[in-house]
Simulated scan of single mutants.
Amino acid sequence: MVSTTDGSLRDRLEATFWERHANPWSAGTRILVYPVFMYAIYRRDAKLFAATLAFIAVNPVLFSRPERTDNYLSRIVLAEREWLDEGRGTMGLDYPNVLNVLNIPVTFYAFASAIRRKPVGTVLGTLGVMVLKLWWTDAIVKKTGVTGSGPGDADSDDSVGQ
């Protein structure tokens, strides 16, 4: 658990962000919101587009801190936090960050297809973005070795914030 007396306000807010984002509902819905976002663009649905953007913005803090983080969706968030805390960044020509670099043109392709209302390109581009992102998150889970914690773990209260 994060102490409210230690560290700066920014550190406490950042810890709260990551703790709440480690909720599997946060990670899972964040993955699933991308196709909805692309659909909103494809359909030119301003309300759905705005609602999707709002959801993306509040998603990491929308859900409560999970009681356990020994599930895959929580582990990808914890691994991302550890990865970034170690200064490894998200872009680069090294593996797995090259996957995010490759995702740039795929994202542009998906957006261009949705804007042009090309259904096959929109679907393929959206799937490509999701595959590359999930491949990156899976790789950082493996590289960091993050396992999360469950109710039977001795340090389960502290491991969400790590």
Rank of each mutant, 00 (worst) to 15 (best):
R75V: 06
M38R: 02
D155N: 09
R30K: 10
I140F: 01
A27N: 08
G161W: 08
V146A: 00
S156M: 07
F49P: 02
G125A: 02
R44V: 08
L48D: 08
T107L: 06
L124T: 11
Y39M: 00
G152D: 08
A79C: 06
S3I: 01
E82Q: 08
V61N: 13
G7T: 08
E19P: 07
A79E: 03
V61W: 14
R12M: 09
D70G: 07
K142H: 05
P60R: 14
Y34I: 14
L62R: 04
T52R: 03
A57I: 03
Y72K: 06
V160M: 01
P35S: 09
V160H: 00
G145K: 03
I76P: 04
F108A: 13
T90A: 11
M38Q: 02
T29K: 04
E80H: 09
Y95V: 12
G125T: 07
Y42A: 10
R30Q: 10
K47M: 10
Q162Y: 15
A50E: 09
V77N: 02
A22W: 00
T126P: 12
R30N: 10
A79W: 00
N103L: 13
T147N: 10
S64F: 09
R30G: 04
T90I: 07
R68F: 04
M91Y: 11
L62P: 05
V146M: 02
L32N: 03
V160N: 06
V36S: 06
E82V: 12
T52N: 09
L132S: 00
V129A: 10
L84T: 06
A50K: 13
E67F: 07
T147G: 11
I56R: 02
M130V: 13
F63S: 02
W18Y: 08
G87E: 01
T52E: 07
V101S: 07
K47F: 15
A112D: 15
T147D: 11
A139Y: 00
W135L: 04
G28K: 07
L78A: 07
P24Q: 03
A51T: 05
E19K: 08
N100D: 01
H21L: 07
T137W: 05
E14G: 14
R10E: 07
A154E: 07
L84R: 03
V106W: 07
G152I: 06
D6R: 13
P60N: 14
S8P: 15
R43Y: 05
V123Y: 11
A22R: 12
I104W: 05
I31D: 06
T107Y: 02
V146E: 04
I31E: 10
V123A: 10
I41K: 05
P151K: 15
L62A: 14
M38I: 05
A46N: 14
N71S: 10
S113Y: 02
V141H: 04
R10P: 02
I41V: 15
R81F: 11
W25P: 03
R68D: 00
R30W: 03
Q162E: 14
M130N: 06
T69F: 10
W18Q: 14
Y39E: 01
I56L: 08
V106H: 10
P119Y: 12
R65A: 14
R88A: 13
T52M: 09
